[in-house]
Nucleic acid binder design. Structure first.
Lengths: 116, 116
DNA sequence: ACAAGTACCTACAAAATTGTAGGTACCAAC
DNA sequence: GTTGGTACCTACAATTTTGTAGGTACTTGT
């Protein structure tokens, strides 16, 4: 759905390629991504429905979308048991786990400065 | 220009209020914000035109917009000399400077993981 | 009188993201 | 044979972000 030759697209791609910070932000900047990551960082494995319950305001469309992107970026792992009714478990990947320290610091910075 | 009662707006506000990480991301997540912050973190003061020259692909509309948001969020300081022709200098604030460590870590993480 | 330089601003259009409201498949239990 | 549960999907609409193409004010230099 993205136009791969729009100025917008090219600008973003350029930034992500040349700037480590921006690349990092593109991975965790989606609306619900850090919420999902935070959930998976302290749960080892979670079923789709458990994540949905935890993120009270998210819609299914958004949840699926963000999960898929996190998965494509290698931050989380999807495990489909191919059962009926479906059972799918998500867990954090090694790459995802390596973000933990950063996320904690972002949490602390945010808490400290959000009331200024 | 934002609808202050749209689901979209409320969801974002809710996240920013309740989650330090998300708050942090909203401040630095704009398309050009970290580029601007990075520039100001290693220049002490920069004129508007200097920033524009450094961010080669940015348009004036976006530069002004991102500068204003960074200023509203207290990360940078605008100093208007009220001269003609205009002279306006931007510099990093104390709050902005306190992000430096985090940004460096994001840079390192990004550099390390962007080729996986 | 006219161009040049600086730091903006504005209306409109294009593109991207997010939300709404439905639907699917499969099997088990009633 | 209808219902319930799970993890999705899809079309469309609303919202938001970003880009394009112009314009402004003021003064100095030519």
């Amino acid at each position: 759905m993205r136009k791969e030759n729009s100025t917008n697209f090219l600008n973003e791609k350029d930034l992500a390629n040349n700037c480590g910070m921006y690349y990092t932000i593109t991975l965790i900047g989606g609306r619900w991504k850090i919420s999902i990551l935070a959930a998976l960082l302290d749960h080892e494995v979670m079923r789709y429905s458990e994540i949905k319950t935890r993120l009270t305001n998210i819609t299914e469309r958004m949840l699926i979308k963000q999960l898929k992107e996190l998965q494509d970026d290698g931050l989380i792992i999807r495990n489909d048991y191919k059962e009926v009714p479906p059972r799918v478990e998500y867990s954090i990947s090694k790459k995802g786990r390596s973000l933990e320290k950063l996320l904690i610091e972002m949490q602390q910075w945010g808490k400290k400065h959000s009331k200024e």
